[in-house]
Computed example of a mutant assay.
Amino acid sequence: MELQLRGNTAFVSGSTQGIGFAIASGLAAEGARVIVNGRSSHRVDEAVARLRAEHPDADHRGLHADFAVPQEVELLLRELGDVDILVNNVGLFGLAEFESVSDAEWARYLDVNVMSGVRLSRHLIGGMLQRGWGRVLFISSESGVNVPADMVHYGVTKAAMIALSNGLAKLTRGTGVTVNTVLGGPTYSDGVAATVESIAGSQGAPVDAVKQAIIGQNRTSLLERFIDPSEIANLVAYLASPLASATNGAAVRVDGGVLTTML
């Protein structure tokens, strides 16, 4: 399917690996010029080189910034320029007992997972409205709907992303700009893969067996396997396209059927 993204510029936060890079690659495959982002200039350069090698039709580039450091975010915003498609993907993830999470850690999670989207959207959505077309996408999680007891801080920030996206969509009434959220499920990202491989190594077990044992603990999964990052990227590419013009203010699932509610 031709998604009509050729000639558009996309910025994907946190896109040097995992879901973020899969999204960047998916948009580039549809002809978009992609700006990747990560905390390290070295990692950003590597991601840009890989993107250019795989999708040479556009002049992809990168900007490094740590969204937990306000000065770096300010510099990134000054260098960013006009963007047609904003994908708010950057995020922190981690298991922790609620009582052990300090105020400082709460602030760090809110700053990276929520305020990154606030700052980027505030900077870019006005230009989209003036030009009459644009896409803002938030990469949230099923954990923002069904907040896990062992990572309340993470789930709360993902719920806040859904609310932020829904509120911003109301600013786009009657325009060609849309704002939506993607609710991902258990995904075999680079971080998850490293953890699984470490467990497999320590147990002397095959990686596939460990993967299946972990996902088997999720009794509501209809997919019964980890989601591949490319499967998240496929939905993002569609929502970023003109073909998704009637989808706005929505939270769209690519969760493998983990969530049990109908809506």
Rank of each mutant, 00 (worst) to 15 (best):
A209L: 09
V192N: 08
V207K: 08
W133Y: 12
V156F: 10
G184A: 06
L137Q: 03
E197P: 04
A160F: 01
G204Q: 07
T175L: 10
T175V: 08
S189W: 10
S189K: 07
T178A: 11
F226C: 02
W133F: 09
S221H: 00
G176Q: 02
A193M: 13
S189L: 08
R225D: 07
A194G: 09
V196M: 10
T187W: 01
T187S: 06
V182P: 12
A149M: 03
R135S: 11
G204S: 13
P186T: 01
V177N: 05
D150V: 04
I227A: 10
V136Y: 06
R135P: 02
S165G: 14
T175A: 06
P148E: 08
I139Q: 04
L168Q: 02
D150Q: 05
S198H: 11
A194K: 15
D190T: 05
P148D: 09
G167E: 11
T178V: 11
R173F: 10
M151N: 08
V152L: 14
L183V: 11
A200P: 13
E142M: 14
I199H: 02
T172W: 03
A169K: 00
L168H: 01
L168F: 02
M161D: 02
V182G: 05
Y154L: 09
K170C: 13
T178K: 09
N146I: 04
A194R: 15
V179I: 11
A209Y: 06
G185C: 08
S221W: 00
V145C: 01
Q203V: 11
Q203R: 15
K211E: 11
I227C: 14
V147R: 03
V156N: 09
T220L: 02
I215D: 15
V147P: 10
Q212F: 02
L223Y: 12
L168P: 00
L171D: 13
V147G: 10
N218E: 03
S198R: 14
S140W: 09
V192M: 14
I227D: 05
A163V: 01
I215P: 15
G191M: 05
V182I: 15
E197H: 11
A149E: 08
L137H: 02
L183A: 09
M151L: 14
I162A: 11
G167W: 09
A160Y: 01
G204M: 10
K211I: 00
P186E: 00
A169E: 02
G184P: 04
G216F: 06
G132I: 03
